[in-house]
Amino acid sequence: MGSRYLARKIVQAILTIVFIVLLNFVLFRMMPGSPDRVLARNLPDAARAELRERWGLDQPLIPDQLVAYIGAIARGDLGSSYKFSNTPVTEVIGDRIWPTLILFGLGELIAIVVGLGLGAYSGWRRGGPVDYVGNGFSLILYSMPYFVIGMILLIVFATTLGWFPTSGMFSLGHRFDSPVEQIADFAWHLFLPLMTVAIGLIGQYSILMRSSIIDTLTEDYVTTAKAKGLTDGRVLRSHALPNARLPAVTLIAINLGYVIAGAITVEVVFGWPGIGTLTVTALNARDYPVLQGIFLLLSISVVIANLAADLIYGYLDPRVRT
């Protein structure tokens, strides 16, 4: 891969992250008066003055506070939670990352395989029965907030049929005899939220892949391939698909920002102890340090995912590597 392309993308990503950190600084200082008025609302004046000093709020905003803030972030110090009795923010968030990563990593994986496959087939057999039904379903799913899908699955499969638990990640107060049993319990709790995420994403990905394939099919090289007498499947696999994949890669990365919104709500519906439920808890308690930490974590993850998509794109499509 061209090192110029690589370097440019990496510099862009770093610049974006710097912007995000600055934005975070500004947001935190935008609060009425200063953070201590919100965070230490109920403390006596003396204690507040002490806090102000400890947080460096008596220093001038620029450069002292900014430098201190960037220094703290570089050390991985995001401050202490307001709600969770002064636990460091990094610890509060760190505990919640794995559940979210598993739920969304697996959900994305299922959605990419099924959604892209469905979309490619629908576009290939445009107007056929699979396209007709699939496209209709995809459009409806596309218009449906994730949490609504979650609520429907929950009421049908957990409340009414009782096949799955209604909330949580493990059965409470249960002693597991073996790790296998624990994993089984985990999978049982994971199933419905996972299906919600996957179903929500499949609609988007299949619409995206469908239009991408339809665009590709009008290209000259596909006509050439057909004229050469290649079989239908061969034209699709070796000529149409590799090119239709490209926009899909970019759009999946761009979509990630929206997926996060869905992530938060799905976790709330199923009481899944991840970043999403943490966000809502922090929001209701107006726990700004934790909210800021979550914003930092999520936006940097999205930037990195976009960088990864750019690099994959560069690898798949030699034309952009200049």
Partner: peptide, 19 residues
């Protein structure tokens, strides 16, 4: 475009509301 704007909205809303 890159930013997860929903998360930004979610932080902005309570801050502006306090303002």
């Amino acid at each position: 475009l890159v930013l997860p704007t929903f998360v930004l909205a979610l932080i902005l809303a309570p801050i502006i509301l306090e303002l």
